[in-house]
């Protein structure tokens, strides 16, 4: 039996020594966030499912080969794998080229044009679906930063480097993304209910005296 309070680093170590349950816990902790990030990029459930599997298989191979060395930052590492695979995915598909990132990829362009399937429309009718639609309505630059920071867990410095803008530009885009999102939520009468949505497993408490904004309320 594994203690649920185990850190990601401890779980990786346990898995390396042959504890399968440790990997299962890691997967259950992070699968939703990684899958959501991939889905918001590729806009196709089936492709997102495939890329999610590819992402974790790559992570498993790296861990089992003894090449994992991320010093406890498991989620950002897995998200980077997912991001790179998504870039490769679009490179192979060669679709919707418009905005080119530093590495030549056209990752986020598909978001504006990809059509949702009937099945997708049927599947998400609740608040999550409406929120997702609001994210899609954001200007491309804001949407790009928002997905990279919030779902792919990149730092603003990494985003600035990746998108070839200054860090202040990246921060400004994120600020406007959140402000615009808030305006859209109010306009569309969407309220966030903290009791309805469970807290994320990856939220880490910060000691008193070093409190950030999430610990204020």
């Amino acid at each position: 039996m594994i203690d649920k309070r185990c850190s990601d680093t401890e779980l990786v170590s346990l898995y390396q020594t042959g504890n399968e349950a440790a990997f299962e816990m890691l997967l259950h902790r992070h699968k939703s966030r990684v899958y959501t990030a991939i889905y918001l990029i590729v806009k196709d459930r089936y492709e997102a499912e495939d890329l999610l599997q590819d992402t974790f298989i790559k992570a498993i191979n790296t861990i089992k080969a003894g090449r994992y060395n991320e010093e406890g930052k498991f989620l950002p590492w897995v998200c980077r794998i997912a991001h790179n695979l998504a870039i490769d995915h679009f490179r192979k598909r060669k679709r919707y080229p418009e905005v080119t990132l530093e590495d030549g990829s056209q990752l986020f362009d598909s978001m504006r044009f990809a059509e949702e399937s009937y099945e997708d429309k049927q599947m998400f009718r609740d608040t999550r679906s409406r929120m997702r639609d609001l994210i899609k309505e954001l200007p491309d630059e804001q949407k790009q930063v928002l997905i990279m920071r919030h779902y792919l867990q990149m730092t603003f410095q990494e985003i600035a480097e990746r998108t070839e803008v200054s860090i202040n530009t990246a921060l400004g885009r994120m600020r406007y993304a959140l402000i615009n999102l808030r305006k859209k939520m109010i306009k569309n009468n969407i309220a966030y209910d903290e009791n309805f949505y469970p807290k994320r497993f990856d939220q880490v408490s910060i000691p008193r005296g070093q409190q950030g904004p999430d610990e204020r309320d």
């Binding site: 899958y35 959501t36 499912e49 969407i190 966030y192």
Partner: peptide, 22 residues
């Protein structure tokens, strides 16, 4: 509030994908 609402957009992969990975 906006940041927290983004957490509401948490989609779940299919059980098949999870089983394949495991």
């Amino acid at each position: 509030s906006s940041k927290k609402s983004l957490d509401a957009v948490q989609l779940e992969p299919s059980p098949e994908s999870v089983l394949n990975i495991l």
